[in-house]
Design a protein around this nucleic acid. Structure first.
Length: 223
DNA sequence: GCGACAG
DNA sequence: ATCTTGTCGC
């Protein structure tokens, strides 16, 4: 699939923050979500020493069967700084997306979107660069506070930061820790949570990110 | 100054 | 993210 170029690429944290400020207004935070959902892509990155492997796995939205996979071996493009995490993985992830022959209807990112100190996490960034609907599903919190959701699958509570609801703590399986869902691009919070639940029929994490995680690790090991 | 801090 | 054994529980 086609993805816009990433330049200019930041050399400093200040430049990276400036790019976030520039792109933030382009994120669509209120659309109802993809009208038709045929394919869904999960993205993840694995690290070893100074190398990384980015993986994208495209699933059939109904059967959750794998439709296509793509990987890219690379070096971290930026140091890890909370809030600027996206700049570390973006080039490799975009490279993997470019190799896809099918254009997915949704991107499921491991990390946050709106639930970010500057309201522009990885899910927003990838959504804007690709133009595709994107949501963030994080394993841990970056910003905000929340009440512990009820114990049953589907239970949730608002994740609030700076007097604003930036996401939800969503229980995807009864009795497991919640995941943190936030809007990325072209899909509102309600849709993002419904999609997350649909993609996580059996485990805490969506099948998209579980499969992308597996693929990224295998790629790093087998080379 | 002291914590908190996606992956 | 990654380093890592056994162990508690369904």
């Amino acid at each position: 699939m086609k993805v816009v170029d990433l330049h200019p690429w930041p050399a400093t944290a200040e430049e990276a923050t400036a790019i976030q400020d520039t792109l933030r207004p382009l994120a669509d935070l209120t659309s109802p979500g993809p009208p038709t959902l045929r394919t869904v892509a999960g993205l993840d990155v694995a690290y070893a020493d100074d190398r990384l492997a980015a993986a994208v796995v495209v699933l059939d939205a109904d059967s959750l069967d794998v439709v296509e996979e793509a990987t890219v071996l690379d070096r971290p493009a930026f140091p890890y700084i909370p809030g600027l995490f996206a700049f570390r993985e973006l080039p490799a992830l975009v490279g993997a997306l470019r190799e896809l022959t099918v254009t997915p209807d949704l991107l499921v990112c491991d990390g946050h979107g709106l639930a970010h100190p500057k309201r522009f996490g990885l899910a927003c960034h990838l959504g804007v660069l690709t133009g595709l609907p994107a949501i963030g599903v994080g394993k841990t919190r970056l910003v905000g506070s929340y009440d512990e959701p009820a114990t049953d699958r589907g239970a949730w509570s608002a994740l609030s930061d700076g007097g604003q609801v930036v996401g939800r703590a969503l229980r995807t399986q009864t009795g497991v820790r919640p995941v943190f869902v936030s809007v990325g691009h072209r899909a509102d919070l309600e849709a993002a949570c419904a999609l997350t639940l649909r993609l996580a029929p059996r485990y805490r994490l969506p099948e998209t990110t579980r499969l992308a995680d597996r693929l990224s690790r295998r790629t790093l090991t087998g080379c």
